[in-house]
Write a protein that binds this DNA or RNA. Structure first.
Length: 507
RNA sequence: GGCGAGAUGGCCGAGAGGCUAGGCAUCGGUCUGCAAAACCGCGUACACCGGUUCGAAUCCGGUUCUCGCCUCCA
């Protein structure tokens, strides 16, 4: 039974999540514009809504998750010079725009796979849905909410505002929006009103990506693709629309307006296409907004390898995922070396406990019950679910993991004596722990993600070296044993002498 | 200028009227040839000034500061 509450940007409060057609759930997330490698800012919404997807699935919903690829670049500047991001990049590198789009789509998939972000059910491309976008624009025109000038089509915000009221999602009204435009109005002469936005733009000769339409050879406007694709795959009304906070205005506001203007009779519904609008907050870097102009934009591959002047070391994708999940998705989150290093150690504390849990979970010894420990394990799932039910509070869920870690460690330390919890509880808890760790939070252990880092030969060599060293230590020949350890450390191989033998890790 | 979010112990970061989240670091301990690692233990903090209340970090008013959006942005 679903008992989930989500914060709806539209109403500015938490609401009980009730799918329109349970158990089916439709969810749309604004995906990346593929003109560059994914950066930290792309990781947050992908992970946030990956959690939503995973948790709803865990709760028995049949989720259709649509996340688009924008392969028509939105216009770059504030002027109407017809340049878009993809085209700019393509001209610079003498490539087809589609080559750029393909390259960075692949790159995006690689980075997201590393973060263990599940692929969506459908990943539609904007360029693959030009007819749908044209059709939608035609409907908006037919309903009288758009006008044609010189082969371009603009959304009539004033008219829309009279009928539906523009600005509900972002909490603005038209006068405020206009007052925010200041003097930057040059190049907008075609529009009747400064808040109007393009649905279709006529292309000039130099434009590489263009399609024919009833109005001109041109290309679709910034916002229409999401409305068209969400309508096609999820219907005129679906459950969840997600994105970053910065998309609320103007992108999502425009989407709502387009959908209302296209699909609904005046006054029918002013909430646009989705019932719940969810937005995750932004990521800052060392306290500052990430921006190319500030020179602090870090892409994910740089994080994974540590190759960036601001980074003191490489950070694994799981460290990044874990760090993001340690904060609530509606809070801003600041990335810094110390924070990431802290998260790396914290995650290791859990994965170490997970390894121990796997060793002891099947135990079926004499039981000397410890009530507190038993209760702690038994209520884990119930607690974790209640945290997740409260607007996906992964931070609290993770904190609950840390309440259970000392119990696992104690059970592990005492494994020569009687078991302090019942065997059934231990087995059941072990399953629930793994479900929340792997399936719901989507975390992995570093071994799972390392993937063939060290081949068989390296493993064999290391076994030889560590056994030589073990023998030397037994003979108290510390000169030899310390020499081996010191030389290996120079190659970033760290030795740890545990009671079970010597372990090694490459750093 | 308009709209919005926020200020929590050394750092990060939950919570949201009474039930001292959690992580990292520090410190102490166990273990160890030494080291590293691991494990155990340890912190009553909520920007400032008023008010409401038996009781406020949590509610109300004000002050200061920070950040985001208003133009493409995840």
């Amino acid at each position: 039974m679903l008992n989930l509450f989500v914060y709806n940007t539209l109403t500015r409060q938490k609401e009980k999540f009730e799918p329109l057609h349970p158990p089916f759930t439709g969810m749309y997330l604004c995906g990346p514009t593929v003109y560059g490698d994914a950066h930290l800012g792309h990781a947050r919404p992908a992970i946030t809504f990956d959690i939503v997807y995973r948790y709803l699935t865990y709760m028995g919903m049949k989720v259709r998750y649509v996340r688009n690829i924008t392969d028509v670049g939105h216009l770059t500047g504030d002027s109407d010079d017809g340049e878009d991001k993809l085209q700019k990049k393509a001209k610079a590198d003498r490539l087809e725009p589609m080559e750029i789009a393909q390259r960075y789509t692949d790159s995006y998939h690689f980075d997201m796979d590393a973060l263990n972000v599940l692929r969506p059910s459908i990943e539609p491309r904007a360029t693959g849905h030009i007819p749908e976008q044209i059709e939608m624009i035609e409907k908006i025109l037919a309903n009288g909410f758009a006008y044609i000038i010189n082969g371009s089509v603009y959304f009539d915000t004033l008219k829309y505002n009279e009928v539906f009221g523009y600005g509900e999602l972002s909490g603005r009204n038209l006068e405020e929006i206009v007052s925010g435009y200041r003097e930057n109005l040059e190049g907008q002469d075609e529009k009747r009103h400064p808040a109007d936005f393009a649905l279709w733009k006529k292309a000039d000769e130099s434009h590489l990506m263009k399609w024919s339409s009833p109005w001109s050879t041109g290309f679709p406007g910034w916002h229409i693709e999401c409305s068209a694709m969400s309508t096609k795959y999820l219907g005129e009304k679906y459950d969840i629309h997600g994105g970053g906070l910065d998309l609320i205005f103007p992108h999502h506001e425009a989407e709502i307006a387009q959908s209302n203007a296209c699909n609904h009779a005046p006054g029918f519904d002013h909430y646009g296409e989705a019932k719940y609008w969810l937005h995750c907050n932004m990521i800052t870097l060392e306290g500052q907004k990430m921006a190319k102009s500030l020179g602090n934009g870090i892409n994910l591959k740089e994080l994974y390898t540590g190759k960036h002047p601001l980074l003191e070391q490489a950070y694994s994708p799981m460290t990044i995922r874990f760090y993001i999940l340690q904060a609530h998705y509606r809070s801003t989150i600041d990335f810094s070396n110390v924070s990431l290093q802290s998260a790396e150690k914290a995650l290791k504390r859990i994965t170490d406990a997970l390894k121990r849990l796997r060793e002891i979970k099947g135990e079926n010894r004499l039981v000397a019950l410890n009530e507190d420990m038993e209760k702690n394990l038994k209520t884990f799932r119930e607690d974790a679910e209640s945290f997740m039910n409260d607007d996906f509070n992964t931070a609290k869920t993770i904190a609950r993991f840390f309440e259970v870690v000392p119990v696992i460690n104690q059970l592990y330390a005492d494994r020569s004596g009687p078991l302090a919890v019942s065997a059934e509880t231990l087995m059941q808890f072990s399953k629930e722990f793994e479900t929340f760790f792997f399936d719901i939070l989507g975390l992995k252990t570093e071994e799972d993600s390392a993937g063939g880092e060290s081949d068989g030969m390296v493993q064999g060599l290391m076994n030889v070296i560590t056994s030589i060293r073990s023998d030397a230590r037994k003979d108290k020949n510390f000169k030899v044993s310390d020499f081996i350890r010191d030389e290996l450390i120079k190659m970033n191989i760290k030795l740890k002498d545990t009671p079970q033998g010597t372990e090694w890790i490459k750093e």
